[in-house]
């Protein structure tokens, strides 16, 4: 697992993927920050030109939906296409070790991206006293959300040999999971609405942007991450038996 983690992490930066992900993440987060917090007045209703970062963190969700598929698209599909999965699957490493190693590598690159929000928070702190508890709550929320999204992305990449298909599947799935609450508005059945809202990433994440820490939301995101890693292991396992 450690060997796979190290190789994957380094490969994010020997291939352009890591730079593209971080570059776009920093750029989009920067635009997001400028619009919502610095020029704030027009965009944010709650936090116009203040140290209020709620809007900023909300918009980050949309940025992540777009960028995480880029981060995870080649994780397992490239291995299958280049047949490098043969060296992984015939070495004395368990399937879960392979999947977790790859997950952690993607997650670390993601954390490097998320770290930029700290910089923004420090900038805010130059003008006013920011609510550090809220900010760290937000970052924790981002990390949990990211873990779930990366896990879904890795699952998508285990389904195909093609990076583009893998990216599209994960973009669609993460997008869908994030917007379930919007869909639920169109379904006039109470119980379905409740279920969809409970499953929705946006609904679960939004609490963190207000600085609320809800354990059930944390458990939800961790469960999604673990579940999809488990599915990925099953896909790899099934491929051997096919």
């Amino acid at each position: 697992m450690k060997a796979i983690f190290r190789r994957e992490f380094v490969s994010y930066f020997t291939t352009p993927i890591g730079y593209i992900f971080l570059g776009f993440f920093f750029a989009l987060a920067g635009i997001d920050y400028s619009v919502t917090s610095i020029a704030g007045g027009s965009a944010g209703s709650s936090g116009s030109g203040t140290a209020e970062l709620t809007q900023f963190f909300l918009w980050l969700l949309i940025i992540l939906v777009i960028l995480i598929p880029i981060l995870t698209m080649r994780t397992l599909s490239e291995d299958k296409r280049q047949k490098t999965d043969q060296v992984l699957l015939t070495s004395p490493v368990s399937l879960s070790g392979i999947v977790v190693g790859k997950f952690l590598a993607a997650f670390c690159v993601y954390m490097m991206g998320v770290a930029i929000t700290l910089v923004f928070s420090v900038v805010v702190s130059a003008f006013t006293k920011p609510d550090w508890v809220t900010i760290f709550g937000n970052i924790l929320g981002l990390l949990l959300l990211g873990a779930a999204c990366i896990s879904i992305g890795i699952f998508a990449s285990s389904l195909t040999e093609n990076q583009v298909i893998s990216a599209v599947i994960s973009l669609a799935s993460i997008g869908l999971m994030s917007l379930l609450s919007v869909i639920s508005g169109f379904i006039p059945i109470k119980i379905v609405q409740t279920i969809l809202n409970k499953l929705c990433f946006l609904e679960r994440y939004i609490g963190y942007t207000y600085g609320q820490f809800d354990l059930s939301n944390a458990v939800y995101f961790i469960s999604v991450a673990v579940l999809f890693m488990f599915f990925t292991v099953r896909v790899l396992e099934k491929r051997r038996w096919a």
């Binding site: 796979i4 190789r7 380094v10 490969s11 999965d85 070495s91």
Partner: peptide
Amino acid sequence: PLYMDMTVKEYLSFVYDL
């Protein structure tokens, strides 16, 4: 099963760890 973006040294070292 070679990782094309690695050097021979890095690759063999990776297999060694693996």
